[in-house]
Amino acid sequence: MDGLTQTRSGPRRTATGGRTPWEDIVLSNVLRIILVRVALGIGLLFIVSLVIFWATELLPGDLATQLLGQSATPETVAALRDQLGLNDPAPVRYWMWLSGAVTGDFGVSMANGRPIAEMIGARLGNTVFLALYAAALSVPISLVLGILAALWRNSVFDRMANAGALTAISFPEFFVAYILVLWLAQTGLFPSMVRINPTTDLGDRLYMTFLPALTLTLVVTAHMMRMTRAAIINLMASPYIEMARLKGLSPLRIVLRHALPNALAPIINVIALNLAYLITGVVVVEVVFVYPGLGQLMVDAVSNRDIAVVQAVALIFAAAYVSLNLIADVLSTITNPRLMHQR
C-alpha cells in the first residue's frame, strides 16, 4: 500500500535517461533496502516471539491441564507439569526456548515428544504448495479481470465482475468450500477431501488440492482485482495518460504500456499481502478439506498450550510475512525510479 501513495505523489515519465550507471544504482539501492529490511525483519521476529509467548502465557490453563482435559486431577496435573518442566518461571522458559531457537533447534513438542522440525517439515511443504497453487490461479485471474475492469470501467462487465468478486468474498471461506463441494465433489468431479502423502505425484496432488485452491482463489481474487482496477484508474486522469490518449493510442495500449507499469507498486503490495494470507490464514480451509497444513497445527498447538510448537509456527508465519513484504518492496522499488533515486 505504500506504493499507492508513491505513485500518487507523482507518476514517472517514461524512462528516457542515460542508462550507464543504471544497473549499479539498482543493485546498490536494492542491496541497501534488503539489508535494512532483513535486519528489521529479524527484530520483528523477536518481537513476534515475545508477543506470542506472552499471549500464550495469559491463556487459561497450561499444557498439563489441556492434555488431561476432563480427567485432570490436581495430582496428575502436578505430576505432568513436573515432567514437562512447566514449573519454571515464564522468563526462564522463554530464555530456554530462545537460546535453542537461535541455534536452529526448535526442540520437541512437549505434548507428544516428536521433534518440532519433523512435525513442521511436511506441513510447511503442504502449506506452501497450496498457497502457490492458489496464487497461480488467482493472480493471473485478478490481474486480467482488474485490467479489463479498468479498461471498460463503469461498463456492465466492470459492474458484474465487481459484484461477483464482492459476493465471493462476502461468503465465509468454509461456506464457499461447502458450496464447491456440493457442486464439484458430490457430482464426482473432484475429491471432497485431500488425502495426500509425501509420495503423491504432482498430477494427483494438483487434482486433489484443486477444490481448496479454488476456494482460496475465490476468497483472495476480489481484493487483488479491486486494487488492480483502482490503481490503474487512479492514474487515468494523470496528464501523461491524457497525453497518450491525445496521441491517439488505443485504450488497451494506454492501460498496458503506460498505466500498468506505474500502477505495479500497489498491485504488488496487495499480491504480497494476499500471498502472506494464503500461507498464514487458511486454517478454516484446511479444516474443511482435511488438509494437513500449518494452520491446523498452530490452532491445535494453541489449544493444547504446546508453546514450543506455537512459537515455531508463529515464527514461520512471521518470516513468510516479512519476506513477502520485503520482496514486494524490492519489486516496487525496481519498478519505480522515483524510489530508486531517493535522496
Binding site: 468454509f174 461447502y178 463441494v181 471432497s192 488425502r195 479444516v287 474443511v288 482435511v290
Partner: peptide
C-alpha cells in the same frame, strides 16, 4: 483412520465415498 473434525466435511467424505 482419518481425522475429520468438521462435521460437514465428515458427511461429505461419506457421501463421496472417501
Amino acid at each position: 483412520l482419518l481425522s475429520i473434525l468438521d462435521s460437514a466435511a465428515r458427511l461429505n467424505a461419506l457421501i463421496t465415498g472417501e
